[in-house]
C-alpha cells in the first residue's frame, strides 16, 4: 500500500518538477518533455494492456534494460574514484577495515587465488568468523530489541502515536 502511494506521489512530484522546468525554460528543458513523454508512454501501454504487451516488452528490453544496467554500472566508476579519495586509514579501526576489505576482495576474484593460495583461506575466514559473529550479534540484538519495543508498546510504556503532551 505504502509503496503504491509512494509511486503515485513520486509520479505527481516528477510531473510537477518537469512541467515547472519546461514553463521557465530552464537548462535543457527539452529533456523534461522527453521524460514526461516516456512516463506517459509506459502508463498508456502498461496500465490497460499489462506489462506483457509486446510494445511494453520492446520498450523494456531495448530502452529500459540497457539504460538500467548502464546507470547501475556507472556507480562502479564512482566507487573507483571514491576508493582513491575517501578510503583513508585515519585510525586503527579504519586500518583493520581496509585490510579486511582488500583481503575479502582478493578472495572474491580469481586473480587473488592465482597470486597466492592463502587469500581465499584468509578471506573466507574473515567472512565466516569475525564477520559472521558480528552479523549474528546484530541479528540477535535486533530481535531482542524488537521484542522489547513490542512489549513496551503493548504494556503502554511506549506511546509512539500519542501526541506530545496529550492525554
Amino acid at each position: 500500500m505504502l509503496a503504491s502511494f509512494a509511486l503515485l506521489f513520486g509520479l505527481i512530484g516528477t510531473l510537477i518538477y518537469h512541467i515547472k522546468r519546461i514553463s521557465v525554460k530552464s537548462k535543457q528543458w527539452y529533456m523534461s518533455i522527453w521524460v514526461i513523454f516516456l512516463i506517459f508512454i509506459m502508463i498508456i501501454i502498461g496500465v490497460p494492456y499489462s506489462t506483457n504487451h509486446p510494445t511494453y516488452q520492446w520498450i523494456y528490453k531495448n530502452w529500459y534494460q540497457p539504460l538500467g544496467t548502464t546507470v547501475y554500472t556507472i556507480l562502479g566508476f564512482y566507487i573507483f574514484s571514491a576508493a582513491y579519495r575517501a578510503f583513508r586509514v585515519r585510525s586503527l579501526d579504519s586500518g583493520i577495515l581496509l585490510i579486511s576489505a582488500i583481503l575479502v576482495m582478493l578472495k572474491n576474484v580469481p586473480i587473488g587465488e592465482a597470486l597466492w593460495t592463502g587469500f581465499p583461506i584468509i578471506g573466507t575466514w574473515i567472512l565466516t568468523v569475525p564477520q559472521l559473529s558480528g552479523n549474528r550479534v546484530i541479528y540477535l540484538v535486533l530481535a531482542v530489541g524488537m521484542f522489547t519495543l513490542g512489549m513496551r508498546i503493548i504494556l503502554w510504556y511506549e506511546r509512539p502515536l500519542e501526541r506530545r503532551g496529550g492525554t
Binding site: 576508493a83 582513491y84 576489505a101 576482495m105 582478493l106 576474484v109 580469481p110 587473488g112
Partner: peptide, 19 residues
C-alpha cells in the same frame, strides 16, 4: 570474471596509492 579480477586489482592499487 577476468574483468572482475583486473578491475579489483586496480581498485586495490587505487586504495593503496590513495593511502
Amino acid at each position: 570474471s577476468d574483468v572482475m579480477s583486473v578491475s579489483h586489482i586496480f581498485m586495490i592499487f587505487l586504495i593503496i596509492l590513495g593511502n
